[in-house]
């Protein structure tokens, strides 16, 4: 029992945690509620990943294959943990597929849920077919064609609206989703590559392409791919008489109202807490922080911890996170779980 780690969620963080646990010679049990492994990058059909530029299906595909080929990893697809008993060193989990798993530690790599744009009705998602989300554009890029869903035409002009479901007290999202600026700058470049004549505008409040993403994504998108960044938070999206979309707002840099026609409007949707988090908190007995993400334990010496001993977390379950950092944190959580199990074994002997 004390040589097994239960990992919940098979996205980048969970796959990384499983590989770490198995790599050290411990056993990993990976439980994934969907029928495919890979998490959001695979389920939502992401195109090329930031910052590697590798296709999601290749990069995440390698991570999936690594755990599938590992004899120390047991995988349960299409299953959820319905009950967890015991304590650090001797947990027993009941799965929705009727099976039972004994494990010494649990890693919650339960990730996030994309913000649902219908919660910002003034921006037209669900009302106008040509208002889409970054996830949908990722899928278009993967399919190799940028088109307006209404009639399939190639858009002359695309607007990407940042902070949709982020930094918005109106809808109770008081966090920055961290990745959308970089993802949007990258998407603008991908749109340009597929359709060089299309003009891409990004409407922003601030640009938060942190760290090394600044010049590699933001500057490159503006300077080499001619993406135009306009400082305006859009008030509403309406329809023009000719069937195009009208973007209304205030261009804060020139203090003037704008009403600009666009063919395609893209919501850069933020990262919500996993919509199952209330259930997860109940089943695993862990706390949620005030926004609804998994609450972090004291970070300095209880790294990757939660509010319950023996249960660890990583990646976007804690809050908005990049794929690369989720992978690193998955590894850290796996290592932390093994270290604690090793400590328990030593104490017992």
């Amino acid at each position: 029992m004390q040589d097994t780690v239960l990992i919940v969620g098979a996205g980048p963080a969970g796959l990384s945690a499983a590989a770490q646990v198995a790599g050290v010679g411990y056993k990993a049990v990976l439980v994934e509620k969907e029928d495919v492994l890979g998490g959001a990058p695979i389920l939502s059909g992401y195109a090329r990943l930031v910052p590697s530029g590798e296709w999601a299906r290749d990069a995440i595909g390698r991570m999936v294959k690594r755990v599938e080929d590992d004899g120390n990893v047991t995988i349960h697809k299409g299953a959820r943990v319905t009950q967890l008993n015991g304590e650090a060193g001797r947990f027993t989990a009941k799965l929705s597929n009727g099976k039972s798993v004994k494990a010494g530690a649990v890693v919650l790599a339960t990730g996030f849920t994309h913000f649902d744009s219908v919660n910002k009705p003034e921006w037209g998602f669900g009302t106008f077919p040509d208002v889409v989300t970054t996830t949908q554009v990722e899928q278009m890029v993967t399919a190799g064609k940028i088109a307006c869903p209404s009639d399939g035409r190639t858009p002359e002009r695309v607007a990407i609206l940042l902070c949709v479901g982020s930094r918005d007290r109106q809808i109770g999202r008081e966090w920055c989703s961290k990745v959308c600026c970089t993802v949007s700058a990258n998407l603008a470049m991908e749109i340009k590559e597929l359709s060089p004549k299309t003009q891409v505008f990004i409407y922003y409040m601030d640009i938060r392409t942190f760290g090394l993403y600044e010049d590699r994504f933001y500057w490159k998108s503006q300077e080499e791919f001619r993406t135009k960044f306009v400082k305006a938070r859009i008030a509403e999206v309406t329809a023009a008489p000719d069937g195009r979309l009208l973007l209304k707002g205030e261009d804060t840099l020139v203090k003037r109202p704008i009403v600009i026609p666009f063919d395609l409007v893209v919501h850069a949707v933020g990262m919500d807490p996993n919509m199952d988090n209330p259930e997860i908190a109940k089943v695993f007995g862990v706390g949620l922080e005030k926004h609804g993400f998994i609450e972090r334990g004291e970070h300095y010496t209880n790294t990757c911890g939660t509010t319950r001993p023996g249960i660890y977390s990583c990646g976007a379950a804690y809050g908005p996170e990049t794929i690369d950092d989720s992978i690193s944190q998955g590894m850290a959580a796996g290592a932390r779980a093994i270290a604690d199990l090793h400590g328990l074994t030593r104490k017992a002997s």
Partner: peptide, 9 residues
Amino acid sequence: PRTITDYDD
């Protein structure tokens, strides 16, 4: 009106 109604690309 002061409204900007289009960009000249």
